[in-house]
């Protein structure tokens, strides 16, 4: 049986209660992400310089998993190139869908705490909402992305 503590790790709970980089950026680009099923809604703000994520932040509302994921994502992608950030999303996506065994944990650093999500398939969308939104912001997509 999946254990709740695998999902709600201390780090995740802590980030959900006190999210980092929870603010608007005055300049740069942004994208909105929705999970229409649970009403989660985030905006991810992004400042790129020479294709490198110079600053990144978010705002919005969502469950503990989606909020913690957004918070830790902003920490993880700051200073990374566009390509590196997208590659990190791919690895992260693998982690939350397939679990620990596959994928390269080392690349993920702290994000590895989300491995428990793979035991809770309905929560994958929560864990990846901010990432999908980041991707849309990087690609400069207009409008909002939806997990449905």
């Amino acid at each position: 049986m999946a254990d709740l503590r695998d999902l709600y790790q201390e780090v995740i709970l802590e980030h959900s209660k006190a999210p980092r980089n929870y603010r608007e950026l005055a300049s740069g680009q942004s994208a909105e992400g929705f999970n229409p099923l649970c009403g989660d809604h985030f905006t991810v703000f992004l400042k790129l310089e020479n294709d490198v994520v110079n600053d990144v932040s978010f705002q919005g509302s969502g469950c503990a998993i989606s909020k913690a994921s957004a918070s830790m994502m902003t920490q993880a992608v700051k200073g990374k190139s566009k390509t590196e950030a997208k590659k990190l999303f791919d690895t992260f996506h693998k982690l939350v869908t397939e679990g620990d065994a596959n994928g390269d944990r080392a690349d993920l650093g702290k994000l590895a705490v989300f491995s428990g999500v793979s035991e809770f398939p309905v929560r994958v969308k929560c864990a990846t909402l901010a990432w999908h939104t980041l991707k849309a912001a990087i690609e400069g997509k207009q409008g909002s992305v939806s997990t449905e």
Binding site: K17, C38, G39, D40, C63, A64, F120, V122, C126
Partner: peptide, 27 residues
């Protein structure tokens, strides 16, 4: 307070309790 309905649903589910969370098609 401080807990999103989706998290409530997941934790109750682990107890075998089936409820629904979300906007219930009534946004």
């Amino acid at each position: 307070d401080n807990v999103h309905p989706h998290d409530i649903g997941t934790i109750l589910d682990q107890e075998g309790i089936a409820i629904r969370t979300g906007h219930h098609c009534a946004q």
